[in-house]
Structure formats: structure tokens, C-alpha cells
């Protein structure tokens, strides 16, 4: 176990962004994914992201070389013993995360901190099968991780003060501000943003306003970087539904009951930027096409196609 190496589990978007942020901050990183293909794609995407940083003058090519030299990838979960901190970024389902935590708990040295990037699942529940739950903690990073200077840290019922203090130190080391809560699925950001997205979808569904009008109003009216529908596309419409259902199950608060249109969109494959269509359409470069806002009637046609 090296004091320097951070292990990141899961090579999807969040994993890639986390690898980039952590390696850029100067730490050594091991990225683990069970699928060789996903791992290679993930590593390639990290490199592409660094290249676009260079194109935006954010990095020099020398700095990129140094960052890439700090990143390693493997499909072997046993490599996680090399880290003093393991952060998982798997799919937002309890079973998957709980299973991984159990495995990590069994393989890693008891001093290793095991963190989950879960947005909506209780860390206490994820760590339920662990022999050493005091070293588990939730660290919720916001996408795009290299740009968002925030991490929300949630302590589980059994998380030790030492684990919490170390997580805070790590967050500061990678230049993130910390807000912390106690065992609170959804933290602050997800808890508050989801009802807004959900309401925005309902306003669209009712025909009160178009996608563009809704996003423009919220963006300019409240000084947001992105409107709620554009944000849902970025998060992934299916992920938004996942989050809502998880939080509804957790709180039984009506504001988390997913709008009908959201589920309809997921079934029709309108999952946001990653499928090139959601509330807006996107080009292959991931940039939004102009005047491409979803009209509700469009979707009923799509289903019939």
C-alpha cells in the first residue's frame, strides 16, 4: 500500500474524469475496470480530455506527459491493495456497489479508505456487508470533475473521524472545496437539483413552455451555468430517473416521483448527450445542435417508429 497511489474503480465517464482530476493534482492513479475494452476506452478518453485541455491552453504537452505517466490501468481487482484510497464510480445501484465494497473490504488492508461516488444511495447501506465499515465513506464528485471545485462528503453511521479527516485532506489536495453531511443520500446538490429537473420536465410535458424557453428562463433568471433540461441531458436522462427513484424510495417525498415524460424518454432511447438525443439533439462532438429542443409530440412518433 503506497501513500501516493489512489485506486479508481470503474472506467465510465465519472471514473475517467476522476482519474484526470486526481492525476493532474499530482497523485499516482490506478484505474480498474473488469472489462479490458472499457478500460482501454476509458484511458483513451482521459488522454483525449488532456489533449483538449492543451488545445484550450489549460495544459502544456510536457504537463500532459507527466500526468499520463502517473496513470495506470488494470482489469485485476487485486491491484486495489496498492492504494491507500479506493474510490468506486460504478452504476448507481445498491447491489452492484454493495458487492464491490464487500470484495474490496476483503482484499484491501484495513487501513485503506474505501469511498463511493454514489449520489443517491446511503453509504451505510453500501457498507453493510463490510467487516471494517469505519473506513468507508461517500465522496460525491460533480461532473465535469476536473472543472467543478466541489466534493460532497457523507459519513456513514460507522465512518470513523479519522477516515473523514483523511477524505477531507484528500479533497483539498486535489483542490476541491468540501461540504459534509451525515449519511444523507442525495447530499445537498442532488437533493435540491432533482426536483428542479423534475418540475422542468413537467412544465415541458404540460406544454407550458419549450425546452429552450425553460432553460433560458432558469439560466438567465438565476445565473445558472446550464438550464435544468440541458443539465438532465448531461447527467443522462436514465440516470436522472435512477436518482429520482432512489430518492423517492428513500424519502417518499412526492417531488421525487419521476415525471411520466422522463420514463417515456428513457424507453425511447432519449438518454441525453451520451445517446446524442435527449431534451436536445447533439452532434458527434457532443455539442448541442441549434433549434433541436424536444417537442413532446415528437416522442410519441418516435415510439411508433
Amino acid at each position: 500500500m503506497s501513500q501516493k497511489v489512489v485506486v479508481i474503480y470503474g472506467a465510465a465517464t465519472m471514473g475517467q474524469e476522476l482519474v484526470q482530476a486526481v492525476a493532474t493534482a499530482g497523485c499516482e492513479v490506478i484505474l480498474i475496470d473488469h472489462s479490458e475494452e472499457k478500460l482501454n476506452t476509458g484511458l483513451k478518453k482521459v488522454e483525449t480530455a488532456l489533449d483538449s485541455e492543451i488545445a484550450r491552453w489549460g495544459l502544456t504537452s510536457g504537463e500532459k506527459r507527466a500526468i499520463m505517466s502517473r496513470i495506470k490501468g488494470t482489469t485485476d481487482i487485486r491491484e486495489s491493495v496498492k492504494g491507500w484510497l479506493v474510490i468506486e464510480t460504478l452504476k448507481e445501484t445498491l447491489d452492484v456497489k454493495r458487492q464491490l465494497f464487500k470484495e474490496l473490504d476483503a482484499t484491501c488492508n484495513p487501513a485503506t479508505i474505501i469511498a463511493s461516488n454514489s449520489a443517491t444511495i446511503s453509504i451505510t447501506e453500501i457498507a453493510a456487508g463490510c467487516k471494517y465499515p469505519e473506513r468507508t465513506i461517500a465522496m460525491h464528485f460533480q461532473s465535469p470533475i476536473p472543472k467543478v471545485p466541489l466534493v460532497e462528503i457523507s459519513r456513514g453511521l460507522k465512518t470513523s473521524d479519522e477516515t473523514f479527516a483523511t477524505a477531507v485532506r484528500f479533497a483539498k489536495m486535489i483542490n476541491k472545496n468540501v461540504v459534509s453531511v451525515y449519511d444523507c443520500p442525495g447530499f445537498i446538490t442532488t437533493r435540491i437539483i432533482l426536483p428542479m429537473i423534475n418540475q422542468a420536465v413537467k412544465v415541458l410535458e404540460e406544454g407550458t413552455a419549450s425546452c429552450e424557453q425553460i432553460d433560458t428562463a432558469m439560466k438567465l433568471g438565476f445565473g445558472l451555468n446550464a438550464g435544468p433540461l440541458a443539465l438532465a441531458d448531461k447527467i443522462g436522462v436514465d440516470t436522472v430517473v435512477f436518482y429520482l427513484e432512489n430518492l423517492y424510495g428513500e424519502t417518499f417525498d412526492q417531488s421525487y416521483l419521476p415525471a411520466k415524460l422522463l420514463k417515456k424518454m428513457v424507453r425511447a432511447g432519449y438518454k441525453g448527450v451520451k445517446t446524442s438525443k435527449g431534451f436536445y439533439k447533439y452532434g458527434s462532438d457532443g455539442l448541442r445542435l441549434s433549434a433541436s429542443g424536444l417537442r413532446v409530440e415528437q416522442l410519441s412518433q418516435a415510439q411508433h417508429q
Binding site: 485541455e53 484550450r56 491552453w57 489549460g58 495544459l59 502544456t60 472543472k147
Partner: peptide
């Protein structure tokens, strides 16, 4: 649409 740190890098390193 550069961030402060990107602009800082542009002026100092590029």
C-alpha cells in the same frame, strides 16, 4: 469561455 486557471496557463506557459 476560458476559466481563470486556463487563462493563467495561456499567459504564463503558452
Amino acid at each position: 469561455e476560458l476559466t481563470i486557471s486556463e487563462m493563467d496557463n495561456l499567459l504564463n506557459k503558452h
